[in-house]
Structures are given as structure tokens and as C-alpha cells.
């Protein structure tokens, strides 16, 4: 079952006053997010990521198209009981303590006081903020605010969590901790929708990603699909004699990277094995071979550059 269903979603903002110009924040975007997935939405600044999340949460309204959460239209308020949200640049009322922030937004999510008494510190502990619960949040650092925001997003034990740049301003250890929290949530069967620029991070935890550029969906698929570059294999071997190098070049259409490495574009696994057999028959020592992967980052940069 799809938790999120988006169908040719379009959002135009009015641009400069009286110019009649339109800002196309989203242009016919369609995709689904399945139950239990960690879904990453990528894109350069101004691509429309935040706008998309806001439409899904009923904060902004779509110009055209439909969006559904749990099979219900996003305008249905009761659906939001099952949803948690960490906005980008969130600003909690700064006269509250961390504990009171959780309490206030928990109650707005429909939780009772008795539930909150039990869970507030559980979640604060999860994000490493339990010692700060009774401190006013105006004394928090940026990363601490972000952690509190994450606890806030999880407080109602939602089935679906939207996180807009959750690791923004968080130190590397904190980022690792947040990743662990997210993986833990996934293991509980929650669906997580992540907006981020940190591609290495997305690569580490996301099952599926979508790439947005200037409001248009450029690509959507599993991280595997997006980063694998056709069927390129890299072989590292012992020193290759001249004749073998020639054979690799002519017969297997390879590219040499010096004496000990070459790459080949290969269509079937059988062909990979043929090369292995050949090398072994020539008593060449194979140090290793691997299917080449693009990093998500280089892939992303290529795609966006192509589009522009």
C-alpha cells in the first residue's frame, strides 16, 4: 500500500507584485511512497522540496493535481493524527522549556496528559536531550533545537514522519545519532520522508529517492537504481602483459587504467565470468572486481547540470 500518493501535483506562486509572473514551484509531479520506506527528496535550493511537503501537510494548497496520505486527501484534518513533521527553520515559542514544547505540540496532536507524562522523556532521551528538558529553549544551540524538533515530530508515535533538513546544524556525531533514530523508526515499520541536501547521508539510509529540479521531477527510484551506471565492471589484477592488455582492449572493449586495472561494460554476468576465466587461464592474479557505482552526489550533479 502507498502511504503517500502524488498525482501531477502543480503549484504556482504569484511572483513579483503586479508583474503577473508565476513562480513554478512544482510542475506535474507524480510519485508514490510505500509503507515502511525511507524516502529521500533531493534537489537544489528552490527546487520545490519544502513546497511539496507543505502541500502534503495541508499548509499550502496545490494549484492542480491531487495528493493523498493514507488514501485520504490531504485536506482531511484527521489524517494528520498519524503524521509527524519537522519543518525547516522551525521556531518554537522561546519562552517554553524543551519539555513544554513537547507537551504543547503533543497535546495539539491529540495526546492526553497521561500519555505525555510517560513518553516525553523517552523521546527526549532518544535524541540526547533528556538533560535539557527543563531548560528554556532560548538557551539552546542550533543543533539542540534540531534534536528537540525531531523529538517533537515523533511524540505522537506517527506512522509517517516528514523531516525537512533534519540534520541541518547538527554535528557529525549528532548526525549519526539521528540516522540511527531514523533507522530505528524504520525498523518499527514507520514511513519516513526526508528532504535533504546531504547526499551522502541520503545514500546511507534511504530506500528510495526522488530528484526534483526547478519544480520538475527528474528521477525517482531506489538508491541502487539511480547510482548504478549501467553495467560497468572494474577489475584489479596483478601486472598485465602487453598481449593480454591488447586482448582486453580489442575483444572485451575495455578501458585500461594502468597496468593493474581496467574497466569493461558488460551486459550479462556470464560475460563477467568469461573474462575471469580468460584471466585465470593466463595465470593472471585477480585482486578483485566490482560493479561500478556512481556516488549519489556525482550522479546528482550530472543530472542537474544536464537539465540546466
Amino acid at each position: 500500500m502507498s502511504v503517500i500518493e502524488i498525482n501531477s501535483l502543480t503549484k504556482h506562486f504569484s511572483g513579483k507584485k503586479f508583474s503577473g509572473e508565476k513562480i513554478k514551484a512544482l510542475e506535474k509531479v507524480s510519485f508514490n511512497v510505500g509503507n515502511g520506506e525511507i524516502f529521500g527528496l533531493l534537489g537544489p535550493n528552490g527546487a520545490g522540496k519544502t513546497t511539496l511537503v507543505k502541500i502534503l501537510l495541508g499548509i499550502t494548497f496545490a494549484t492542480e493535481g491531487t495528493a493523498k496520505l493514507f488514501d485520504k486527501p490531504v485536506t482531511n484534518v484527521s489524517v494528520k493524527k498519524k503524521v509527524g513533521y519537522l519543518p525547516e527553520n522551525h521556531r518554537f515559542p522561546n519562552y517554553l522549556t524543551g519539555e513544554q514544547v513537547i507537551d504543547y505540540f503533543g497535546k495539539l496532536s491529540g495526546l492526553k496528559k497521561s500519555d505525555l507524562d510517560k513518553t516525553t522523556y523517552k523521546y527526549l532521551k532518544m535524541v540526547g536531550m533528556d538533560e535539557w528538558g527543563t531548560t528554556k529553549i532560548k538557551k539552546y544551540s542550533k543543533g539542540m533545537m534540531q534534536r528537540l524538533g525531531l523529538a517533537q515530530a515523533m511524540i505522537s508515535n506517527p506512522d509517517l514522519i516528514f523531516l525537512d533538513e533534519p540534520t541541518d546544524g547538527v554535528d557529525p556525531i549528532g548526525r549519526k545519532e539521528i540516522r540511527d533514530v531514523l533507522l530505528d523508526l524504520k525498523s518499527q515499520g514507520k514511513t519516513i520522508f526526508l528532504n535533504s541536501h546531504l547526499l551522502s547521508e541520503i545514500e546511507l539510509i534511504c530506500d528510495k529517492v526522488a530528484i526534483l529540479n526547478k519544480g520538475e521531477l527528474v528521477k525517482v527510484g531506489s538508491v541502487e537504481d539511480i547510482t548504478s551506471t549501467g553495467n560497468k565492471y572494474i577489475f584489479t589484477t596483478g601486472d598485465l602483459p602487453e598481449e593480454i592488455m591488447n586482448k582486453v582492449l580489442s575483444e572485451y572493449k575495455g578501458t585500461l587504467h594502468g597496468k593493474n586495472e581496467f574497466e569493461c561494460t558488460i551486459n550479462t554476468l556470464e560475460e563477467v565470468n568469461v573474462i575471469v576465466d580468460y584471466l585465470r587461464s593466463q595465470k593472471i592474479l585477480i585482486h578483485g572486481f566490482s560493479k561500478e557505482k556512481n556516488s549519489l552526489e556525482s550522479m546528482f550533479i550530472n543530472l542537474i547540470e544536464q537539465k540546466n
Partner: peptide, 15 residues
């Protein structure tokens, strides 16, 4: 209505 607060408020199950 300040940014960062209204977003969060509207994401809650309150009409």
C-alpha cells in the same frame, strides 16, 4: 503567523 511556527501548527490535527 510567523514562519516556522504556523507551519508546525497547521501540520497538527486541528482545523
Amino acid at each position: 503567523l510567523k514562519k516556522g511556527h504556523i507551519d508546525l501548527l497547521l501540520s497538527k490535527p486541528i482545523s
